[in-house]
Amino acid sequence: MDKTETNSLGQFRNICIFGAGAIGGALAARLASSPMLKGAKITAIARGAHLKAIRDNGLHLHEPGKTEPLVAKFSATDNAGDLDPQDLVIVTLKGHQLTSASADIARLLKPEGRVVMIQNGIPWWYFHGDKASGLQGRQVEALDPDGQVWQRIGPERVIGGVIYQGAQMLEPGHIRLTSGGLLHLGEPSGTMSPELGAIADLLQASGWTIKTTDHIRDQIWLKFLGNAAFNPISALTRGRISEIMDGPAVDLVKQVMTEVHAVAERLGCHVRETVEEKMEHGRGLGNAKTSMLQDLEQGRPMEITPLTRAITLLGRMADVPTPANDILLSLISQLDESMAKARTAEA
């Protein structure tokens, strides 16, 4: 083990992946199997049948190009109170799940511990350390009701994460990755800190392609450009991305992306793809299902605020009209409300 590995392991001996679904489970499996982390304790927060399968048989990670799955053994629990304080917590929950989990995440962290937040859409900490927008330190109530996440976890602990990784839960204890994967990491302040470098080293050594950046918000908006359009439209139409791009909603995709691009630029971010380039990228995703459509089909609450409501709110802050996104928000909110009533009636 070279000097870099020794330093990284010495700093992060207790690592928790909070939310061991498809992405979180893959992170846990690779970290637990990494020779670089042999002396570290990897723990995942999971639940239900998936938790039982991990405990009984380990997590089976089916990776592209490999005939046999990686079988990883690591600790797993559904009770964060079971764990000792952690040096590093990697959170892969969706935005609307964070408030209820924030107290547990905060309790898990050592005073000097760091938390990597891997999330789609606009995160709760967005304006912390943001020197470009003129809104530094602003809290957005809809993204963090009553400021609970901000107060409990603290934005100064956060390292932002933007991931590109196709992943699917095949069955409890079995996860399939459908692409090589890329994870962008960055401090909200833009600082290229030693902690950022050490965390990047750990994840890179466990099999991920990692890019660190001093402009994490640029990466947030680049991915958001597609998510803001494809997620709500797919839920409303029940369409896969190829069906959306070949159907009448393609003009709405362009309108939504154009508005998102304008808001990002007004807030001081550089989105390196044009709307046209992002649409072509979308065509390349083929018959993929968005996360919002998957949630809808499985009867789960949809991730509306970070992926749809956020652009309408930030548009107002930036004085950029967002009429297409405003309409999408109204429609997807009504759909989510009707689904919630159906769940209540079934219960």
Score class of each variant (00 low, 15 high):
residue 22 A to R: 05
residue 200 A to N: 14
residue 79 N to W: 08
residue 261 H to C: 13
residue 239 G to A: 15
residue 158 V to A: 10
residue 96 H to E: 07
residue 251 D to W: 06
residue 137 G to Y: 05
residue 15 I to S: 10
residue 33 S to G: 03
residue 233 I to P: 08
residue 169 M to F: 15
residue 319 D to I: 02
residue 153 I to A: 10
residue 122 I to T: 11
residue 173 G to K: 15
residue 32 A to I: 01
residue 347 A to D: 05
residue 66 K to H: 15
residue 92 T to Q: 12
residue 306 P to G: 09
residue 318 A to V: 02
residue 327 I to C: 12
residue 156 E to N: 09
residue 177 L to Q: 09
residue 240 R to M: 15
residue 20 A to I: 13
residue 208 W to C: 01
residue 156 E to P: 06
residue 319 D to Q: 03
residue 121 G to Y: 02
residue 164 Y to T: 12
residue 133 S to P: 12
residue 309 R to M: 02
residue 203 L to W: 05
residue 241 I to S: 13
residue 120 N to K: 08
residue 303 E to I: 02
residue 303 E to R: 02
residue 187 E to Q: 05
residue 13 R to P: 12
residue 224 F to S: 11
residue 205 A to T: 04
residue 224 F to E: 06
residue 149 V to Y: 01
residue 98 L to P: 03
residue 338 S to N: 15
residue 177 L to T: 04
residue 74 F to S: 09
residue 105 I to L: 06
residue 275 V to G: 07
residue 107 R to D: 14
residue 114 R to Y: 06
residue 248 P to R: 11
residue 152 R to F: 11
residue 230 F to E: 11
residue 120 N to Q: 10
residue 338 S to H: 15
residue 69 P to M: 06
residue 52 K to P: 06
residue 22 A to C: 07
residue 69 P to D: 12
residue 285 L to Y: 13
residue 226 G to E: 03
residue 209 T to N: 08
residue 101 A to Q: 08
residue 194 P to V: 03
residue 117 M to N: 12
residue 10 G to C: 09
residue 329 L to R: 01
residue 161 G to H: 01
residue 296 L to F: 11
residue 110 K to Y: 07
residue 317 M to D: 10
residue 62 H to F: 10
residue 143 L to S: 09
residue 193 S to C: 00
residue 114 R to V: 02
residue 231 N to Y: 02
residue 115 V to R: 02
residue 61 L to D: 04
residue 329 L to C: 08
residue 48 G to I: 03
residue 287 N to S: 07
residue 198 A to E: 11
residue 298 Q to C: 04
residue 140 V to T: 13
residue 110 K to E: 11
residue 196 L to W: 03
residue 207 G to T: 00
residue 255 Q to K: 10
residue 84 D to Y: 14
residue 170 L to C: 07
residue 328 L to C: 03
residue 292 M to T: 04
residue 223 K to F: 11
residue 63 E to V: 02
residue 109 L to V: 08
residue 317 M to I: 00
residue 99 T to H: 12
residue 197 G to Y: 01
residue 165 Q to F: 02
residue 232 P to A: 04
residue 143 L to M: 03
residue 255 Q to A: 11
residue 143 L to F: 06
residue 172 P to W: 00
residue 245 M to E: 08
residue 101 A to Y: 00
residue 346 E to H: 12
residue 150 W to R: 11
residue 297 E to A: 12
residue 43 T to L: 02
residue 156 E to R: 09
residue 211 K to P: 01
residue 228 A to Q: 03
residue 13 R to M: 13
residue 307 L to N: 13
residue 60 H to C: 04
residue 3 K to T: 10
residue 335 L to K: 09
residue 145 P to R: 05
residue 237 T to C: 15
residue 134 G to V: 06
residue 251 D to L: 14
residue 236 L to D: 10
residue 96 H to M: 11
residue 319 D to P: 05
residue 230 F to W: 14
residue 241 I to D: 13
residue 104 D to A: 14
residue 117 M to P: 14
residue 320 V to E: 10
residue 52 K to C: 07
residue 122 I to F: 00
residue 140 V to M: 14
residue 289 K to I: 13
residue 191 T to I: 12
residue 23 I to L: 00
residue 107 R to N: 15
residue 81 G to H: 11
residue 156 E to L: 11
residue 329 L to H: 03
residue 100 S to M: 15
residue 62 H to C: 05
residue 314 L to A: 14
residue 77 T to R: 13
residue 217 R to A: 12
residue 241 I to Q: 09
residue 250 V to C: 07
residue 94 K to I: 01
residue 14 N to A: 06
residue 198 A to D: 06
residue 81 G to N: 12
residue 239 G to F: 12
residue 16 C to L: 05
